[in-house]
Structures are given as structure tokens and as C-alpha cells.
């Protein structure tokens, strides 16, 4: 099992796997997001307190959840790179980072557009919002640190350590609504209790959640392929791969 898994430390193998996985994730992700969004916008009932403004939940919650999951995935890749020194690990790390950063930005922006009509302000320096903003800076820090090195193995190591240290922010984001007094409402679905949302509102949310997850996976995989090609550009297998496609 471990042997089977570790073959993907080789860039060539990882490249092939990425190609297969991308085909599985990409179209289903678009389909799910389309269904979930139309269902959420048109068919889900109004919220009794927030009216139609609550429909922002259908992109806010998936993007926020994925911004944290992507961070964990990125940190796992960094750990594999630091401990086992897989050549492909830092490529995965740096492929995920911009995707996670975009998810974090979406979560912050949709939160602001939801906060304005509901709380009366676009932004407030409270625990949930501030820790989520720090998450964005962590992503940008990882990207910046990686690109600051000419030796990408060194850059990967530095950025990887930063990614690992930043993991401490993830539980802080999650529990911030419990630990501190905050304007942000408590958890809706990510808790052990029953979800505090009606099923006809929950279904489109779950569909969009899965859709966003597949989207993040698909785009990360696409970027991972780019990263493999960029790092291996002078190797024979890359040349034969691209030049044979031509004919």
C-alpha cells in the first residue's frame, strides 16, 4: 500500500495521475455548482429573519469551509515535503496555495456583502473575520516565500515551514465564534449536533459544498500539472510528451 502510494513521489507518475483525476473532478464540479446555485437562488425558501439576503450562504459557507480544508491539504503536502522529501510534495503545496487564497478571498468578500445588510457594516475587527483575514495573509505569505527563492527546493522548504506553523490558525478560525463574543453567527452544519437549518435549505448547500470541493481539487490538480512541467521542463519525458502530442 505504502509502496503503491509512494510511486507518486515521481513527477512523471504524478503527472499521469493528475491528468486522470482532473477529468473526474472538473465537469462534475461545474455541474454540482450550477445545480446547487440555481436551487439555492430560485427554489430554496426565504429565511424568516434574513429574507433573501441569506442566499449568500450558498457561496459563503462552501468557500469558507474550502479555504480551511485547502489550507490543511496544503500543510499536509508541506509535511510530506519536509519529512519524506518527495519531489512532488512542494509542487502540490504551491499548486493549492493560490486556489485556497481565492477561496479565502471569496469567503471574506461574500461575508462583507452579507454583513452590510445584516449587521450594518462591511467589516468589523472581530475574531472570526480577523482570523480569516490572517488565513489570506498566510496563503499570500506561502506564495511569496516560495517565489522569493530561485532554488525551488529551498523555497519549498521555507514556504512549507510557514504553511505548517500557520496550521494553528485553523482551529482558531473554527472555534472563534465560540471562544469570543462575535457578530458572526455560530456553526450551521459543521457540528456534531443536528444541523440548525431546514432540509430544503440544506440540500442546495450540501450540493454546492461538494461542488466547491471538486472545483478546488480540479483547479489544484491543473495547477499541479503546470508546476510539474515547469520544474521538469528540461527532462526528456516532458519533451517526448509534448512533442508527440504535436503530430
Amino acid at each position: 500500500m505504502w509502496k503503491w502510494f509512494s510511486q507518486y513521489a515521481k513527477p512523471e507518475k504524478a503527472y499521469q495521475l493528475c491528468g486522470t483525476l482532473f477529468r473526474w473532478f472538473w465537469l462534475p464540479s461545474l455541474l454540482l455548482i450550477l445545480v446547487g446555485t440555481v436551487w439555492g437562488l430560485v427554489f430554496a425558501p426565504q429565511d424568516y429573519q434574513q429574507g433573501d439576503s441569506f442566499r449568500i450562504i450558498y457561496i459563503h459557507v462552501p468557500s469558507a469551509l474550502l479555504s480551511m480544508s485547502a489550507y490543511v491539504a496544503m500543510a499536509v503536502a508541506a509535511l510530506v515535503g519536509l519529512v519524506w522529501q518527495w519531489r512532488t510534495a512542494y509542487m502540490a503545496m504551491i499548486a493549492i496555495a493560490p486556489v485556497g487564497a481565492v477561496m479565502t478571498f471569496i469567503a471574506l468578500f461574500t461575508g462583507a456583502a452579507w454583513g452590510k445588510p445584516m449587521w450594518g457594516t462591511w467589516w468589523i475587527w472581530d475574531a472570526r473575520l480577523t482570523s480569516q483575514l490572517i488565513l489570506l495573509f498566510l496563503y499570500l505569505g506561502v506564495i511569496a516565500l516560495y517565489s522569493a527563492f530561485d532554488d525551488k527546493q529551498q523555497g519549498g522548504k521555507a514556504a512549507g515551514i510557514m504553511a505548517l506553523v500557520g496550521v494553528v490558525n485553523i482551529p482558531i478560525i473554527h472555534y472563534s465564534v465560540e471562544w469570543w463574543n462575535t457578530l458572526h453567527q455560530g456553526a450551521t452544519i459543521t457540528k456534531f449536533d443536528k444541523p440548525s437549518i431546514a432540509p430544503e435549505m440544506l440540500w442546495p448547500l450540501l450540493i454546492n459544498l461538494l461542488g466547491f470541493a471538486l472545483f478546488v481539487a480540479a483547479v489544484s490538480i491543473k495547477r499541479m500539472r503546470n508546476e510539474i512541467v515547469r520544474r521538469e521542463i528540461h527532462r526528456p519525458w516532458i519533451k517526448s510528451l509534448f512533442l508527440e502530442n504535436e503530430k
Binding site: 437562488l41 468578500f109 456583502a113 452579507w114 452590510k116 445588510p117
Partner: peptide
């Protein structure tokens, strides 16, 4: 539908920027 019960601006702003960010990526 476009009015979103008076919240149209905020709802469409959120969905529009999300779509734009994902397309750019």
C-alpha cells in the same frame, strides 16, 4: 428574482464577484 426582496445589490454583488474570481483563477 433580481430584486431579491430588497437585497438584490448585495446578493448579486456577492455572486458576481465569486463568479469573477473563480473564472479568473
Amino acid at each position: 428574482f433580481l430584486e431579491m426582496g430588497g437585497y438584490g445589490f448585495f446578493v448579486w454583488l456577492a455572486f458576481g464577484v465569486t463568479l469573477g474570481a473563480m473564472i479568473l483563477l
